[in-house]
Each structure stands twice: as C-alpha cells, then as structure tokens.
Amino acid sequence: MDALLRTVDVNKYFGGLAAVSAFNIDVQAGEIVGLIGPNGAGKTTSFNLITGVYMPTSGRIQFEGKDIAGMKPHAITRLGMARTFQNIRLFKEMSVLDNILVAEHMRMGTNLFEATLRLPSYMKKERRVHERARALLDEVGLSAHEQASATSLPYGKQRRLEIARALATEPKLLFLDEPAAGMNPQESVELMDFILKIRDQFKLTIVLIEHHMQVVMGVCKRMYVLDYGVTIAQGTPEEIQKNPAVIEAYLGVG
C-alpha cells in the first residue's frame, strides 16, 4: 500500500546547525505513529517542516503521493493535514466557539460579497458551520463553555479545544505536538482513550510527539526516535524499549 505521508532525506539547517538531518518516515493510513526523543532532538522542527511552517533545506515530503515541500501551511491544511501546538496557540481574544469557526472558514466556500451582504446562501453556510462546530465541541466535552473566552479554560480543556479546532479543518492526517504535556497520569489515560476514539470516529491517521512514555507506548503501534536531528531508531514499542541506542540517548552512556 502507498504511504499517506512519506518524507525522503529531509534536511533542515538553521545556519550551521543541522536541526533535522536525513529524516525519513512513512506513515500508512489509519496508523498512530509516535515521534520521541530528548529535548532539542528536532521533533517539533520535523512537524514544522511537514506542515509547511519551515521550508526544508533539502529533501522531499509527499502527502498522498503529492509533493508538498515548500507549500504554504494553509495550502497544506487544505490538502488534509492539521496540527496542534506544543505551547498551546489558541485565538485568545476569541470565544471557544469562534476558535472552531475560524478553522471552518477554509471549507466553508464563501466569498466576501455574499458574506458581507448576508445573502441567504451565506446565512445557510453560516448555520451549517455553527452546527458542525457545536457538534465538535460536544464531541470533546466543551459545549458548556461555548461562549467562554478560549484562554479562560483550564489547561486540559485548552488542549482539547486545540484538537477540536484541528479536527474542524477535516484532516486525514493529524499531528499532535505533546498532547499530554502538563497532564497528570489520570488525565493522560483519558487522553489516550480520546486519541483512539477520534482516530476511529474521524478515520484519522495520527502522528504524535510525546514525552509521556505511558501515552506513547499505549497508543502507538510504531515509533521513530530522534536525537540531535538524526533518526536513531524505529520500530514497535517493544523493540524501541530494548534498543541500546535509544537507552543511551535517554540515559547517557553508563
């Protein structure tokens, strides 16, 4: 089967620093793939490369067989990729509902003319996206906070809102950047269930960066380990746990 996402020898230099080198991953449709590694290993940089925030210095990135390296982030999102951020990036002056509605804009298919004149065709679309946004909020258990400002939510709910917002763009492939950061063990377990649930419900493929080993080992069937921008290992959770290179990277040479 052809991979949903494939990167071929992707490199990214910041000046003389190789943030990511020879980055090769394959993600099949329906998989949950983990990306782990110590701080500064280049995990978030590789997310930024794939989602178009950074442009790779060299190498190819293919999504559904199409070359996407160098495309703008919003164009990549249109193709069916969405992401969350390590340091939550919500629209802080906007309500919870409006946060989702922003993500609906892209697929709303409206134009300035009908939107500012409030033509019936536009009002119909507006009602449709409101319904969809409310359904999504219901799905992640945030219906009660619809009108609250996004940053007034507690941390865990902000994370959920970010995921719901990403889902509103109707992605095929979802990138989660440390979704369990700052969560207690109980919340992490709930998050794992939540990730599996949305994978099945929205027919998603998921790539996630995570430090919580419990979460990664729990939901990922396969993972890549990065260290200093280099992929040092890949395989199933069991293989990774036994891999000497990984142990060395995490614990240092004994």
Binding site: V53, K72, H74, R89, F91, M108, T110, A115, R165, A166
Partner: peptide, 27 residues
C-alpha cells in the same frame, strides 16, 4: 457585517495568533 462574518473571524484569528491561523487553513 464584515467583522461578524467568517472573514471577520479570520481577521481576528490573525491578530490573535498568526501561526495558528495559517495552520487552520486561513490564507
């Protein structure tokens, strides 16, 4: 009308967080 429309929301999302707006498909 403009500010209350989907375009208005897109404008405000840029003001609040440009990177997130771009990642949510806002040009």
């Amino acid at each position: 009308f403009l500010i209350k429309s989907s375009y208005g929301r897109a404008f405000k999302s840029i003001r609040d967080n440009e990177i997130a707006a771009e990642s949510m498909g806002v040009d």
